[in-house]
Design a protein around this nucleic acid. Structure first.
Lengths: 199, 199
DNA sequence: AGTATCCTGGAACCACGATTCCAGGATGGC
DNA sequence: GCCATCCTGGAATCGTGGTTCCAGGATACT
């Protein structure tokens, strides 16, 4: 091994990830990434290959490191509806405050944008959606076992409803939607599937 | 008036609209529009001004001519929940079949994309969302008056939930989601707010 | 019929997009 | 300490982006 990289590829990828997340792939130039990371074009290309590969790596990183853990925790949390409520609370907090406020969900953004033309992107996003759906369903099954669900509420379709709701939250958060308003909306949705609807 | 346009501006705008709708603003080039409309760059610029103005006009046209009528019909339909169900049926049909299958909603796409950086685009989309929300609320108020809603279901927050759900449907339709699956999801959501939940 | 006005066609313009290439420098094994 | 190997910096390349300009042609009023 004659020479070694003078920078941290993971850190660089994370910087690129943030740019793609906020601005989308089409409107983020290589120059933007060069400027933000501080490293040179040559190093970028030598390390990641090209813009498409870089975006793909960033999206994969997002799905695995940002979404993945949240979904896994939801799926493994056995408390039922409280777990679902906590999941949405965390989601709204992450979307409306802190460093990434107003950025939405990178995967949702990609789905609505032209990035979606890419075959591998499609596959990643499809799996991402299924992961969310499955995690919600696991939590709802737990809720059902604990008798938390109103009669006639089926975990499967309800998980689909909540997954679409989460997509909606992600989307609206980009518009700078108020966190309290989003929480109220989610609460209303969860109330209508819970055992004793809010009186 | 010495000379008159040799083409129909509305038809040209509609062609541009379809391109922007499908591909987004960033990835649609003026050349694409020139090719699709068959008319010349000069005519395009003389008529619409520039890419940004053209996109803005297309988006406004979309909101007024495509979304607007649907929302108005929903708001004025006094039947309550059946009106909401019909609205979603029509939405899913339009998103999953016909000429625009898999295109999603232009407004939703714009919200997730970089188009959203533009001030006027933001204003248009915000109003678009409010229109949807208001229409749903009007329909839910009618449902409440007719005693169609389950106890504890409030038209206001529920309209917010359904608006986010609609956004989710629009998003997923771009992924080529199955129309029947989407209908089942929507049915599940509507059942949980209706008077007698599916047994 | 003449003419001022506007529209059309095509080329030209300029900036910025992604990508590649080459020289120079640093590294680790022998 | 030498050398093959890889990394770095910056310039160069080539295509494409949006936009503008000008000559030629068509029009409607006088």
């Amino acid at each position: 091994m004659p020479d070694i990289k003078h920078f941290d590829p993971d850190a660089a990828l994370d910087t690129a990830l943030r740019l793609f997340w906020r601005q989308g792939m089409a409107t983020t130039g290589i120059q933007d990434i060069v400027t933000a990371t501080g490293l040179n074009r040559s190093s970028l290309y030598a390390t990641f290959g090209g813009k498409r590969e870089l975006y793909l790596a960033a999206l994969k990183r997002y799905v695995e490191l940002r979404s993945g853990p949240k979904y896994r925790r939801l799926a493994e949390d056995g408390r039922g509806l409280p777990a679902v409520a906590d999941f949405f609370d965390g989601l709204i907090a992450a979307r409306c405050s802190g460093e990434h406020a107003g950025w939405g969900c990178m995967a949702v953004n990609a789905q609505a944008g032209a990035e979606y033309g890419d075959f591998e992107v499609r596959a990643l996003l499809e799996r991402h959606h299924q992961d969310l759906r499955d995690a919600l369903r696991a939590a709802l099954v737990a809720a059902e076992e604990r008798g938390q669900l109103a009669p006639g509420v089926d975990p499967g379709p309800t998980a689909d409803v909540l997954a679409l709701l989460a997509h909606g939250v992600n989307l609206r958060s980009r518009a700078g939607a108020d966190a309290r308003a989003l929480r109220a909306t989610v609460t209303s949705a969860l109330d209508s599937i819970g055992r004793s609807p809010a009186v």
